[in-house]
């Protein structure tokens, strides 16, 4: 049995939740003010999901990088695999906010999208 303090990030309340769990199973939960907290806690134990943010190099833009994110949370355990896809990638300017930069990076179910605009040089 393990104990862990997690912060629910589903809404601005940001409940600090104390959980007890064993393997994948949630045993005890304390501190969540709504039912979503429990869902979040269960997810955190089984397969924590994170929005990945990083940057990708740009060719011919007014900046050398474009910031990107995964358009949905991805498994924490796959974050480094996705990061590898960015390493030497170069995308062409111009880029608008929301443009898809990579589809299904490392086979993970999400798109990598631009979070800023890049104009031509």
């Amino acid at each position: 049995m393990r104990e862990k303090e997690i912060t629910c990030i589903l809404c601005p309340n940001g409940c600090d939740i104390l959980i007890e769990y064993s393997g994948d199973e949630l045993l005890e939960i304390e501190g969540a003010i709504c039912p979503k907290g429990k869902e979040y806690a269960e997810q955190e134990i089984k397969n924590p999901l994170r929005t990945l943010t990083s940057s990708v190099m740009v060719k011919g833009g007014d900046t050398s990088l474009v910031s990107v994110k995964s358009n949905k949370p991805v498994p924490l355990k796959n974050v480094m695999d996705i990061m590898k896809e960015f390493e030497d990638l170069k995308v062409n300017a111009p880029i608008s906010v929301g443009d898809v930069i990579i589809k299904k990076p490392a086979g993970i179910d999400c798109n990598i999208v631009a979070t800023r605009e890049v104009k031509n040089k």
């Binding site: 940057s55 990708v56 190099m57 990088l65 960015f86 390493e87 030497d88 990638l89 170069k90």
Partner: peptide, 11 residues
């Protein structure tokens, strides 16, 4: 050295 290098595009 001020920096270790580029963050992206090492290769």
């Amino acid at each position: 050295n001020l920096f270790s290098g580029q963050a992206k595009g090492w290769g």
